[in-house]
């Protein structure tokens, strides 16, 4: 089993193999994403009842919360790739790391925008300097730092390793974001979903929320695969398999 796994893993690390596999998976992933996002949006925007306090405007959580989850998740993916890059010098991990950054930055931005749109009717202001909001903003800066550093170094292999180091260092910030709600008193509501013993969110809202979270995760994978494929073609432009691919 373990042997099989390492073999599979090593093959996945080879650029032409990954290019082909990702190409095969993409249509299936896109289809699944379409189904999930339609189901999630229908469940969230039509089926779920309005909130007894917040009325209809709470429905933005079906975009806001998954986007915020993704913003953290993608950073963890980047940090994990960073470790792989520094330890095993795996080319594919470098490309995944740097391809994930713009997607993560977009999700972070989306979480901030949807949050402030929700904040206007609820808190009466688009922006408050609350711990959660501020740390999400800082997370956006971390993403931009990663993208900026990668762009600034000309030798892309060196750039990838520099970015890997930065991503790992930035991970120190992730727990601070996570525990910020408990550390500082804030306007932002505490976690409602992860209290598994007794979730304080009704299942009719929880199910569309989880569907949307899954859809966002799939979207991340789809967008990541496309970016990785493009970056692979660019980096390997002088290799045989790309030549053959273009000929055929």
């Amino acid at each position: 089993m373990f042997k099989w796994f390492t073999k599979w893993f090593h093959r996945l690390g080879s650029p032409p193999h990954f290019y082909r596999i990702a190409g095969l998976w993409l249509p299936w992933l896109s289809g699944l994403f379409g189904i999930l996002v339609i189901a999630g949006l229908y469940g969230g925007l039509v089926l779920a009842p309005p909130d007894y306090q917040q009325g209809e405007s709470y429905r933005i959580i079906f975009v806001h919360v998954p986007a915020a989850w993704m913003s953290l998740f993608i950073y963890m993916v980047m940090a994990f790739c960073g470790v792989v890059v520094l330890v095993w010098r795996m080319k594919l991990a470098e490309i995944v790391l740097i391809s994930a950054a713009p997607v993560g930055a977009s999700f972070t931005f989306l979480a901030l925008v949807t949050g402030s749109l929700w904040g206007k009717p609820m808190w009466g202001t688009y922006w408050v300097w609350d711990a959660r909001l501020t740390s999400e903003l800082i997370l956006l800066f971390l993403y931009l730092g990663v993208i900026g550093l990668y762009g600034a170094i000309d030798d892309k292999r060196v750039a990838a390793r520099a970015v890997a180091t930065l991503a790992i260092v930035g991970v120190v910030n992730i727990p601070i974001i996570h525990y910020s709600v408990e550390w500082w008193n804030s306007l932002h509501q505490g976690p409602t979903v992860t209290k598994f013993d007794k979730p304080s969110i009704h299942w009719s809202m929880l199910i569309p929320l989880l569907l949307m979270a899954l859809a966002f995760k799939l979207y991340f994978i789809i967008s990541l695969f496309q970016r990785v494929r493009a970056e692979l073609l660019h980096r390997e432009r002088n290799s045989r398999w790309v030549e053959e691919l273009i000929r055929s």
């Binding site: 800082i138 800066f141 971390l142 931009l144 730092g145 900026g148 550093l149 600034a152 930065l166 260092v169 930035g170 120190v172 910030n173 601070i176």
Partner: peptide, 13 residues
């Protein structure tokens, strides 16, 4: 400029 972008977020805590 890049340096400030990298370092300032980490200074926040």
């Amino acid at each position: 400029i890049i340096l400030s972008l990298l370092v300032l977020p980490l200074y926040v805590p």
